[in-house]
Computed example of a mutant assay.
Amino acid sequence: MEKEILKWGMIGTGNVTERKSAPSFNKIKGSQLVAVGNRTAKKAEDYAERHGIPKWHRDPHDVIHDQSVDIVYIATPPGSHMEYALETIYAGKPVYIEKPMARTWDECCIINEAAEKKGVDVYVAYYRRSLDYFKKVKEIIDSGSLGKVLHINLQQYFPARDEDHQRNHLPWRVIPRDSGGGYFHDMGCHALDILFYMFGGPVEVMGKSTNMGGLYAPVDTISASLLLPDNLLVTGSWSFVTPKSYQKDQVEVVGENGKLQFSIFGFTPILLDLENHKESFPIVQPENIQMPLIQSIVSEINGVGKCPSTGLTAAVTSRVMDTISGLF
C-alpha cells in the first residue's frame, strides 16, 4: 500500500490528540491529516479549524468511509475501539488504535482475526517501543553489561486524582464500559508492554487485585508475578490511591554484574550501577511523543521499515492485564 502521501483520518479529539499524537501526522514527510470526526459536531469543527484540517465529520463513521482517507487513527476511549476498528478493517484500510487496544483480550482477538481475514494491518499506540529512552534501556540490557538478568521489580504508585472523588462525574478511565477497567488498564499497560518488548512475552502470569480506595468500581491496587523467557521472574505492584508523598514510578533490572533503573512515565535519567562503574543517561523526549511510532507506521506502509507495535503484540498485554485483574 505504498503511498506518496499517506492521508490520515482521525476519530476522536481528546487531549491525547492535541500534542502527543495528531501534530505528528503533518510533521512527518509523506504524511497528512486530512479529516477528523467526533460524535459532537462542534468538537470536530473546532478541532479542524484550530489545527488546519481540511475536513471534519459529525459522524465518526464518515471518517472511515471518506474516500480521501487511507488510514484511520482511533483516538477514542477503548469502549468504542472494536466497533471503529472492525468497520475500518472491513473498509480495507489499516488502522492505528490508541492503547489499550480494546476493553478486553477477547475484543483484541476479534479485531486481529478480522484483520487477518481481510489482510489489513493493525497498529497500536504503545509508543514507548519507539522512544530513544526505552531504546537506550534495551541497548544496555542487550549489551550484556549486566550479565545474566536475575530478576525485575516494577513499582508504580500514584495518588488518586481530584476527579476520582466526583462520584457523579467520574472520568471515563474508571468506568469499565468505556475503559475496560480502571487506571491499571489505562496506565499499567505501558509498563507491561515495554517489558514484553525488551524481554519477550510472558510464559506464566499470576496476579491479585483489589479496591482499597473505594472511589470507583474497578480495582485500584494490584500485585502480579510474571515468568518471562529464560525463567526470568518479574514482580510488579501498582496502586492508584497512594498518598502523593509516596508516589513512585520505577523499574529495577538486577543482573549478575549490577542493576539498571528507569521509569515508565517520569522519564527520569536511566541509572546503570555496575560494580566498578556508575553512569546516568538523561534522555529528552520528543515534543510529540507518539511521533517516532507514527513514523514507523508511515515507513512500514511505504515498505521501508517496520512498526514495533501491532495488534498482535498489543493483544498480549491485554490478555495479561485481564489475567491479573481476574477478568480472564
Rank of each mutant, 00 (worst) to 15 (best):
M1R: 10
K3P: 04
L6N: 05
K7G: 03
G9V: 11
T13H: 07
V16R: 10
S21V: 09
S21H: 13
P23F: 07
S24A: 15
L33T: 07
N38S: 15
A41P: 03
E45G: 07
D46E: 15
Y47T: 01
Y47A: 07
R50F: 02
H51Q: 06
P60Y: 08
D62Y: 01
Q67P: 00
D70F: 09
V72P: 10
Y73N: 12
A91H: 07
G92H: 04
P94M: 08
A102Q: 08
C109F: 11
I110F: 07
I111M: 11
N112W: 05
A125Y: 12
Y127G: 00
R128A: 09
S130E: 15
D132A: 13
K136F: 07
V137M: 06
I140Y: 06
K148T: 12
K148C: 03
L154E: 13
H169E: 09
H169M: 01
H169A: 15
L170P: 06
I175Q: 14
R177P: 01
S179H: 00
M187G: 00
M187N: 00
H190T: 12
D193N: 14
D193C: 01
M198R: 08
E204P: 06
V205K: 05
K208P: 03
L215Y: 01
Y216M: 00
A217I: 14
P218G: 03
P218T: 05
V219W: 04
T221V: 11
S223P: 00
S225T: 11
L232K: 02
S237K: 14
W238E: 00
S239L: 05
F240W: 02
T242S: 03
T242R: 10
K244Q: 12
S245G: 01
V251P: 00
E252Q: 15
L260V: 07
I264Y: 00
I264F: 01
G266F: 06
L271W: 06
L271F: 05
L272K: 01
L272Q: 08
E279L: 02
S280W: 03
S280K: 09
F281R: 12
F281D: 07
V284H: 12
V284I: 13
Q290A: 10
L293D: 02
E300T: 01
G303H: 08
K306Q: 11
T310Y: 05
L312E: 15
L312S: 13
A314T: 04
T317G: 04
S318Q: 14
D322P: 03
G326I: 11
